[in-house]
């Protein structure tokens, strides 16, 4: 009994500490949101005061229209959607073959994929840039998408391989007896059983691509109208050094979608991350 009370006391103290730190933790985002509703003069004068005198929603419409954030948002959406589809399809197909068929070369292939896990992207980006230039795709949307989808997708391939390997052999055999071919078994029986993994890979790739900065930056250097949100945000601050509240509104526009997606689907994201430690 006394132990229970003591534990309650400790827990209360811990909650207090965690809440205080947590408030400090997310404070930059809160500050950003409130700053996006201030006027520029208010922003400079306000110091640490959080609340605006009256909410200036015009900051958002100014960033959206004058600051080109509508175009940046559309670009981010297109690049992210296309990249997610490409990466998930490629890694699911490869993972299915590697997990279910012991074809000659499967082990070598898996080893080769894994070996490149620690090769940093910055290391390979110069030749990728030249390759995309040779394909005539520099400063085009398909070029950005292709560069975003490059990389070995090792984590995803390993996740799919482990998952498909764990599905019972009987499933495939009974489907085969019913006359289902290799592809149909994959598409209609195995894939629907893999929705948690598919969700994990979709969410993770969505967040990575949406946040990506380096690749869209170098692939849109000479083509401002192809900029994604992250790149647009950067150039916006370079061009409008005095429009602080417009900057905060732009930052809110780029950060809020990904935060919402994460809060709604965080289970899948966290599972994927945890999987990379156990693997």
């Amino acid at each position: 009994m006394r132990r229970l009370v003591a534990r309650r006391g400790t827990n209360a103290l811990l909650h207090l500490a965690l809440l205080t730190f947590g408030a400090l933790w997310v404070y930059p985002f809160v500050w950003m949101l409130f700053s996006s509703l201030k006027t520029n003069t208010e922003y400079i004068a306000s110091g640490i005061r959080l609340l605006p005198e009256s909410a200036q929603w015009s900051n958002f419409s100014r960033a959206w229209r004058v600051g080109h954030f509508s175009a940046y948002f559309a670009n981010s959406a297109i690049v992210t959607a296309a990249t997610v589809v490409i990466v998930v399809v490629l890694s699911a197909l490869a993972g299915y073959a590697l997990g279910r068929v012991r074809f000659p070369g499967a082990r070598v292939l898996l080893a080769a994929f894994t070996a490149t896990m620690f090769i940093p992207k910055g290391y390979t980006i110069l030749p990728v840039y030249q390759l995309i230039k040779h394909l005539g795709l520099l400063n085009t949307m398909p070029g950005v998408i292709l560069a975003e989808s490059s990389g070995a997708h090792v984590l995803f391939i390993l996740l799919y391989t482990a998952h498909f390997r764990s599905l019972p052999q009987e499933l495939e055999e009974s489907a085969e007896i019913d006359g289902s071919g290799f592809f149909r078994t994959f598409r209609q029986i195995m894939l629907p059983l893999s929705l948690p993994i598919v969700s994990t890979t979709v969410i993770m790739q969505f967040i990575w691509t949406w946040n990506s900065f380096f690749v869209p930056l170098i692939f849109t250097l000479n083509k401002p109208e192809l900029r994604t949100l992250a790149v647009g945000m950067f150039s916006f601050t370079g061009e409008n050094t005095v429009d602080w509240s417009g900057m905060a509104a732009g930052a809110s526009i780029s950060l809020i979608p990904v935060m919402v997606v994460f809060i709604l689907f965080q289970r899948y994201f966290i599972n994927g991350i945890a999987g990379s430690v156990k693997g």
């Binding site: 965690l18 947590g22 933790w25 997310v26 930059p28 985002f29 500050w31 950003m32 700053s35 967040i207 949406w210 946040n211 990506s212 900065f213 949100l229 992250a230 790149v231 945000m233 950067f234 601050t237 602080w244 900057m247 905060a248 930052a251 780029s254 950060l255 990904v258 935060m259 994460f262 809060i263 965080q266 994201f269 966290i270």
Partner: peptide, 23 residues
């Protein structure tokens, strides 16, 4: 708590850099 402390991870590093520059 996990959500609160994980939130900065899912935000774009580039945008975080810009916001922090102003902070």
């Amino acid at each position: 708590y996990r959500t609160v402390y994980f939130l900065p991870v899912v935000t774009a590093a580039s945008t975080v850099g810009i916001v922090m520059k102003f902070i």
